[in-house]
């Protein structure tokens, strides 16, 4: 059964499904969050999250089984990947065997157009994250090399952004006609939910449904950083 916080159900009365689409656990080399501790934190803080996606760096974790935690805490826990390209970092949702065979997830200079194309062919969904960030963000590379084809969605709200980065992301996304989603990019427990994505009037229980919802495009990025950190 999905849990809903009272105080935030008041704040976001019409929200149906809120997911943090960008988190890291101890499976990532720079991650220090245990997945169960994320769940405990969400429950204790009564965060209005219905679930989260583990986007481990340069890998896809096909071993861990989080279903017992989903049942225990009433959360949807999904797995994806954050890969590194010549245009910055990209989240890939719906990783499957076809995609794992299409390119080397550990390569830190993957051609972004190949990642976007192969993801599409494999039925997955690829979207650049923290695009407003220097060096590892899409739009920094646009400044140097110009825009590329195949991008339709970017992470416009990222919990790790410094002032100005998300504003740049949102403005550029609007100018270029890209849709925007949100994720905390949490590497430690207490930052989960800083940013997330609202899927109104939808139910998402697994990664296939998430990919479908992302492709359908009925979602928006939300920030809860001020509420959580205060």
């Amino acid at each position: 059964m999905k849990r809903r916080s009272l105080y935030l159900s008041f704040t976001f009365a019409d929200i149906r499904m809120i997911l943090d689409l960008h988190t890291h656990s101890v499976k990532s080399d720079d991650g220090r969050a245990k997945v169960e501790n994320y769940c405990k934190w969400i429950q204790k803080k009564e965060l209005p999250l219905d679930g989260f996606v583990l986007t481990e760096h340069r890998q896809f974790d096909d071993q861990s089984d989080y279903r017992p935690l989903e049942d225990a805490y009433g959360l949807t826990i999904m797995k994806a990947s954050e890969v590194e390209t010549d245009y910055g970092h990209v989240l890939v949702f719906g990783v499957n065997d076809d995609l794992l065979n299409a390119f080397d997830f550990t390569n830190v200079r993957l051609p972004i157009e190949m990642v976007l194309e192969e993801s599409s062919k494999a039925g997955a969904f690829a979207a650049p994250c923290h695009p407003g960030r220097k060096r590892v963000g899409l739009f920094a590379h646009y400044e140097e090399k110009g825009p590329i084809q195949g991008v339709h969605t970017v992470e416009t709200l990222n919990g790790g952004s410094i002032p100005g980065e998300d504003e740049l992301s949102s403005n550029m996304a609007e100018t270029l006609g890209y849709r925007g989603f949100g994720g905390s990019d949490s590497h430690v427990v207490s930052r989960i939910g800083y940013c997330a994505t609202n899927f109104p009037n939808q139910r998402i229980d697994d990664i296939g449904q998430l990919v479908g919802a992302l492709k359908a495009g009925d979602f928006s990025a939300i920030s809860m950083k001020e509420q959580i950190s205060s």
Binding site: D30, R32, I162, P163, V188, V189
Partner: peptide, 17 residues
């Protein structure tokens, strides 16, 4: 514990446990 050190410009310089 989660630990963090935030730089003056808002960047997270250090995270830890």
């Amino acid at each position: 514990l989660d630990l963090a050190i935030i730089a003056e410009d808002g960047r997270t310089g250090v995270i830890g446990t």
